[in-house]
């Protein structure tokens, strides 16, 4: 098992109030790691700290290289794709333009076309709406667009922040089916933040439980570990 992402001693404060204390976690290459916990436990903050869009202390090593001090766009170009919880849709741009943002300043047009082809293969719904303004898409479609845009970075690590948030159960199912397909097709390494524990544990190979900004538990979502994780998240014990 190769460590693709190695986070150590990560701490974050918002306006003097600590939000993360000394978090450490590992994402293994080719596996899905779920980051779970109650509301306000620090899951989103962890992803934002890894992408360096908020101030933090501690070390983040990606693929053997310290990336803690790099600018967010550098980190993205190195292959860490972050799908934020607000989905980051460029509403005024078309679906096609949204997909071309990550490759706008790197790579050539031919490679861009190939990548788009490959990504859209997973998202037939987007392929039908390439010329439409992204702001007019439904919530589920915007989530798919966000994941597709992240894939356009040719990421080695995909960080997803609550992909199920605000979506109807049927749409959530669709999104997760696509995620599963992507994982199986590309052996993509994923760090998944998810409020819906059932969904998260069903897809994850490994789970980390956050509680009030601290790692409470890390383990396997097998029969034995599952119960422990569920108790830890819901009962805090």
């Amino acid at each position: 098992m190769r460590r693709l992402l190695d986070v150590e001693g990560l701490s974050v404060s918002y306006a003097g109030a600590p939000a993360l204390h000394d978090i450490s976690l590992v994402v293994a290459e080719g596996y899905v790691t779920a980051l779970v916990g109650a509301n306000g436990a620090g899951k989103t903050t962890t992803l934002r700290a890894i992408s360096n869009i908020i101030r933090k202390t501690g070390s983040v090593v990606f693929d053997g290289r310290e990336i803690g001090a790099l600018a967010p766009d550098r980190i993205a170009r190195l292959g860490v794709a972050h799908v934020p919880s607000d989905r980051g849709t460029f509403r005024a741009l078309t679906v096609d333009e949204n997909l071309r943002v990550p490759t706008a300043l790197s790579g050539n047009r031919a490679a861009e076309r190939d990548d788009r082809e490959r990504v859209l293969h997973h998202f037939p719904r987007l392929a039908e709406r390439l010329g439409q303004r992204a702001g007019t898409l439904s919530g589920g479609e915007q989530q798919m667009l966000a994941i597709a845009r992240a894939l356009m970075l040719r990421p080695r690590l995909l960080m997803l922040d609550e992909p199920s948030f605000g979506l109807a159960p049927r749409v959530v199912e669709e999104v997760f089916a696509i995620l599963r397909r992507i994982r199986d097709a590309d052996r993509m390494s994923v760090l998944l933040v998810e409020q819906n524990l059932g969904l998260a544990l069903a897809i994850a190979d490994h789970a980390v439980v956050l509680d009030a900004g601290r790692v409470a538990l890390a383990g396997l979502p097998d029969e034995a570990g599952r119960l422990q994780i569920v108790r830890r998240v819901y009962l805090g014990a």
Partner: peptide
């Protein structure tokens, strides 16, 4: 493509950064 990147950066700088655009 540069124009596209600028439009993206103008509309949502954080999302543009996360998409690898050097917004600064």
């Amino acid at each position: 493509r540069l124009g596209l990147a600028m439009r993206a950066a103008a509309e949502n700088p954080t999302s543009a950064r996360l998409s690898g655009i050097p917004v600064d």
